[in-house]
């Protein structure tokens, strides 16, 4: 588990990128970190990975301070948004480099995956396209079998087919090993179908974090139409987060409490549909409930 306590990071001693940030990333989860460009997602990952030294605060990984601790870093692998490969290095050379750094590196996994993705093993990676380079980086990261894998702007430049392939690969990695994946994106939709925990970084701190399943099960999106005339007050007994009405049909976002569905049925609606909620909607309504305008954040 990664616990971050009161983390502050400032550049030049003046610009606070992170301020009193608190966060808890559970084990064996895929943690999505979302936030606008420049919100500090990458800085947070760099602090966790000891690239940057925090101005103050503490990062504890599996109960131990993580900064510059090579034993803890053995269980961490970080793929930044801006990738780097040594000039002239092929995927094989890069894999060998990773192998020398990580004790549990699986070279066979690199061979297999590269073959499936038709990546030339011996060609210089720097001659590859942006998406192919990212594929190489992700393959090497997964092959380390590290406990914590950090991806910054994970699927940037990767086509949808390969993206889905990697999502499955990450999921299978999770089931095989006790791996925790931390992903950042400025695009919530990209993380929606893979993350099981989400944190929103805004105003130099984690504004909101939660388990996605809990979020989804705790909220209902309902389309409803009643025989008689109705308005927002008709649902005043419920914990309505959002009410929108177009013609005779209203769309409600409701915090799912005991008796909510029974109450809705008791109104004898002409239409009563429970619709799936997207992560974006969940975040929007939760943030609005907290008093933030979500559109400004993401």
């Amino acid at each position: 588990m990664i616990e971050i306590k009161n983390l502050c990071k400032s550049f030049d001693g003046t610009v606070d990128v992170l301020k009193d940030l608190n966060c808890c990333i559970p084990d064996n989860a895929i943690y999505g970190l979302v936030g606008a460009n420049g919100s500090g997602k990458s800085t947070l990952l760099r602090c966790i990975n000891s690239i940057y030294k925090a101005t103050s605060g503490e990062i504890v990984v599996d109960g131990l301070p993580s900064y510059d601790n090579e034993e803890i870093k053995k269980e961490m692998v970080f793929i930044p948004d801006d990738l780097f490969f040594y000039p002239g290095y092929s995927l094989y050379d890069t894999a060998k480099f990773y192998q020398s750094m990580y004790d549990n590196f699986d070279l066979e996994f690199v061979f297999d995956t590269a073959r499936k993705l038709k990546l030339d093993f011996d060609k210089s990676i720097n001659t590859f396209s942006k998406g192919m380079r990212r594929q190489c980086a992700i393959i090497c990261a997964l092959a380390t079998n590290a406990k914590y894998i950090f991806f910054d702007e994970t699927f940037d430049g990767i086509d949808p087919v390969v993206r889905q392939y990697f999502k499955k690969l990450i999921a299978s990695q999770m089931t095989k090993k006790d791996t925790t994946v931390i992903m950042t994106s400025h695009n919530l939709r990209e993380l929606e179908d893979i993350c099981d925990n989400l944190g929103l970084i805004y105003n130099q701190k984690i504004l909101f974090e939660s388990d996605v399943n809990t979020l989804k099960t705790n909220m209902l999106k309902v389309q409803i139409s009643l025989k008689e005339d109705f308005d927002e007050d008709t649902f005043s007994k419920l914990d309505v987060l959002s009410y929108k009405r177009i013609g005779k049909v209203a769309t409600l976002i409701i915090n799912d409490k005991k008796g909510t569905k029974k109450y809705l049925e008791s109104l004898k609606p002409i239409i009563l549909d429970y619709l799936p909620l997207t992560l974006e909607e969940i975040f929007i309504y939760q943030m609005e409930a907290l008093g933030y305008a979500f559109e400004k954040m993401v």
């Binding site: 760099r46 090579e70 970080f78 801006d82 750094m101």
Partner: peptide, 18 residues
């Protein structure tokens, strides 16, 4: 001197001392 290379090296399991 290169931010990308700093990310690459410093994120590896090796301390500054090493």
């Amino acid at each position: 001197f290169k931010r990308k290379e700093v990310d690459f090296i410093m994120s590896k399991p090796i301390s500054r001392r090493q």
